[in-house]
Design a protein around this nucleic acid. Structure first.
Length: 263
DNA sequence: ATGACCGCGCTACGCGGA
């Protein structure tokens, strides 16, 4: 089963491209981040027309997550237990959706950006990741044999080699020790990241800024991942970052992250 | 060539992105 996660940076602006990509991707499951639309605006015909079921969650022009699948979609959950909110009213944001598909619970996650190290959004990011860790730990405690995977845009570069120049990130988010510790805590809880071993770096990236010719200069960041449960991870057979999809006019700033699982 | 930000919304410039 081919499971893909992709931050599309607006599903409406990218509708044609996502459809064309689905036609050639052979994806069984596509976990999407950054829909940038409300549920009432979601272009579900992209998926209907191609025989994919789709579940989506969008509240406004920010964030938004979805899962599309051609191998069934059941037991959809919006958010996760004790997911923190943000803002004066601590409103919960559209950053998590999951569903059982092909015998695997797949999460589509858009981890908060953090903005600046001294910004309230950074504290929110760390709290959000800790709540996510608690959910993963609880799932494993309840059933160590459950097949599930946390996929999406983690907005963390776990290793120095995951950015083109670590010196350019001094004092920036995405590389700070607390963020990296929050990512490591997910691994310490028992999850296994399946893309890096099968598509190792250095200089393997999933995101390139639109500015400053970052893509043609091969200056990117590796911040999109798949963290699989112990029952699923050993079945990972191949992984690929589809950087071809980052080329040309109208590309998302993130590339699809593809993993084939023998399930 | 892969080429000098992009998408969104009370359509106009500020916000968020990383």
């Amino acid at each position: 089963m081919r499971i893909v996660n992709w931050n599309v940076n607006s599903i409406r602006a990218r509708a044609e491209r996502v459809g064309a990509w689905l036609d050639r991707s052979d994806a069984d499951v596509l976990a999407i981040q950054e829909l940038k639309c409300k549920d009432t605006q979601f272009p579900r015909e992209i998926f209907d027309d191609r025989g994919y079921e789709v579940a989506f969650h969008g509240l406004n022009q920010w964030n938004g997550v979805a899962i599309a699948s051609r191998v069934g979609l059941e037991d959809v959950e919006i958010g996760f237990d004790d997911m923190p909110g943000f803002g004066e009213d601590l409103a919960s944001e559209a950053r998590a959706i999951s569903a059982v598909t092909g015998g695997v619970r797949v999460y589509s996650l858009y981890v908060p950006n953090g903005r600046e190290l001294d910004h309230p959004h950074y504290t929110y990011k760390l709290q959000w990741l800790e709540a996510l860790r608690a959910v993963a730990a609880a799932r494993l405690a309840a059933d160590k044999d459950e097949k599930f995977v946390l996929t999406g845009d983690f907005n963390i570069a776990p290793l120095d080699e995951d950015v083109w120049d670590i010196d350019a990130f001094a004092g920036a988010t995405h590389v700070s020790p607390p963020e990296r510790a929050a990512f490591q805590a997910l691994l310490d809880a028992g999850l296994i990241e399946t893309t890096r071993p099968l598509a190792p770096g250095p200089a393997v990236y999933t995101y390139w800024d639109y500015q400053k010719l970052r893509f043609p200069k091969k200056e990117g960041m590796r911040i999109d991942f798949q963290l699989a449960s112990p029952a699923l991870a050993p079945t990972a057979a191949a992984a690929m970052i589809d950087r071809e999809e980052r080329k040309g006019k109208g590309a998302s700033d993130h590339a699809p992250v593809i993993v084939d699982y023998d399930v």
